[in-house]
Simulated scan of single mutants.
Amino acid sequence: MITKILLEVLAELGEAPVLIDRRFSREIGEVGALSARKIAAAPALAVRLILVLLKRPRFCVFFCTNRSFSFLVDVVLGELLRFFRIPTVNYIHTRGYSELAERGRIWRFLVSRLLRGAIANVCLGETLKADLLPFVAEGTISVVKNTVEVPPPEAGMRQRGHILFLSNLLEEKGADVFVEMAIEMCGISPDRRFSLVGAPVDDGLLAELRERVRKSGLSGRIVFLGPLFGAEKWNALASAEVLVFPTRYRFEAQPLTIIEAFSVGVPVVATNIGSIGDLVEDGVNGWLVAEANVNSVKEAVLKATSEPATSDRLAVGARRTFEQMYSREVFRAEWSRVIAGMRK
C-alpha cells in the first residue's frame, strides 16, 4: 500500500517514478524466511536495477530491510547505487539495525556501509531515529510518517461495545492476548462483543484460539472473521469502538492498521513498542500498554470504553490525529521536503 501511495505522490510532485519490486515474498509466512526461490530471484533483481541505473535516474528511493538474507541483498544493491553514483534515499519501514550490528564487526560494517551510502535516511517516527543514530549523523535522518488510502465514505458507523483485533493472526501480533482478554471481559461486560479480522498464518494457533473460545461458551460474542479486504475491511474497522493491537513483534515500527483506525475515528489500545508511542497518546486517541499481557490490555480497554463521553472524546482525538499528522497531504508535504533537500 505505501509503495503504491509513494509512487502516486512522487508523480504528483512532478517525478516519473519507476518501480523495481523485489518479488521475494508472496505471502506473509514467507517474510524473513530463506528459500531457494528467493536466492534465485536475487540476481534477477540486481540485473533489473542495473538496467534502470544505466538510464541515469535523478535519484533512487530504496526500501531497506534488515532480515538477514534480504539485508545482504540490500547491501549489494546499495553498492550498485554507489557505483553508479545515484543519489539515494534509504526508506526504512522497520527497526532492528542496531540489533543486527550487534552480531559482530562484519555485520556492523555492512549496516554502516548501507546506511551511510545514502544521502538521506527516512524513517517513520522520531522514536525510530535511535536505531539509526549509531551509524549515521542525525542531520541525514528525516521522518516521513506513514499514511493510508482514504476510506470509502460509506464505511460503517462505530458501535458501542464492539472491540476489534485487525492484523495477521500471530502470537507476535497479540492474537492470543486479545482472545484471552475478550474471554475475561465477556465475564464482566455482557454488552461487549469481540471480532478478530486477519489472515491465519499459523493454522495451529488459529485452531487453538477457536477451541479456547468454544470451550468458554462465547462463540457468539468472540468471532473470527478471517481476512477482509476493501469495503468489508473498512466496514469492520469503522464499526469498532476501539481497535486493540497488543503486538510484541520485535521489528514493529509504525503499523498501518493503527493509522487506518485513526482515519475512521477509531481509538486504539496498543503496546508501546517501535514507533507506536509516536502515534498513540494516552487519553487523547487511545491508550498505550507497556507489555502485551491480558491484564494491562483489559484495563486499557476498560478505560477507553467504560464511559461514553470518554469513548467519544477518544474517537474525535483519533480522527484529529490522522488529519494533522498522517493524512496524504502531510505525507506529500514531507516527501516534498525530502526531495527538496536532495536538490541542495
Rank of each mutant, 00 (worst) to 15 (best):
Ala240Ile: 04
Val73Leu: 06
Ala333Lys: 14
Glu260Asn: 10
Glu138Tyr: 07
Phe83Gly: 12
Glu281Ser: 11
Thr305Pro: 02
Ser216Ile: 11
Pro134Phe: 01
Thr305Met: 00
Gly117Phe: 00
Glu12Ala: 08
Gly187His: 06
Thr257His: 09
Ser219Phe: 10
Phe59Thr: 07
Asn272Pro: 02
Leu51Phe: 12
Gly96Gln: 02
Ala309Thr: 12
Arg221Phe: 04
Ala155Ser: 13
Leu124Gly: 08
Asn90Gly: 05
Ile273Arg: 11
Met185Lys: 08
Glu30Ser: 12
Lys173Leu: 02
Leu6Cys: 01
Asp131Arg: 02
Ala309Met: 03
Trp335Thr: 08
Ala11Lys: 07
Asp278Pro: 08
Ser35Gln: 06
Glu281Cys: 08
Met342Val: 07
Asn295Phe: 15
Lys4Asn: 13
Glu102Met: 05
Lys303Pro: 01
Ile39Met: 14
Lys344Ile: 14
Ala175Glu: 11
Ser25Met: 06
Leu196Phe: 11
Val266His: 06
Leu49Tyr: 09
Ala292Trp: 07
Val76Lys: 01
Ala300Met: 00
Arg210Ile: 00
Lys145Leu: 09
Gly174Arg: 02
Ala130Tyr: 05
Leu209Phe: 02
Gly230Asn: 10
Thr247Ala: 05
Cys123Ala: 12
Pro57Ala: 04
Arg214Tyr: 15
Ile106Ser: 13
Phe322Glu: 05
Gly117His: 04
Pro308Trp: 00
Leu10Val: 06
Leu288Arg: 09
Gly274Asn: 01
Ala207Met: 13
Ile28His: 15
Lys4Pro: 07
Ala304Ile: 03
Val111Arg: 04
Ala11Phe: 01
Ala101Asp: 11
Arg319Cys: 05
Ser70Arg: 03
Thr147Cys: 04
Leu124Phe: 03
Gly230Phe: 00
Phe62Gly: 08
Tyr249Thr: 03
Ala155Glu: 03
Ser219Gln: 15
Leu34Phe: 15
Val197Asn: 02
Ala40Met: 12
Pro267Met: 07
Tyr326Gly: 06
Leu6Tyr: 03
Ala120Leu: 15
Gly204Leu: 07
Val201Phe: 07
Leu128Thr: 01
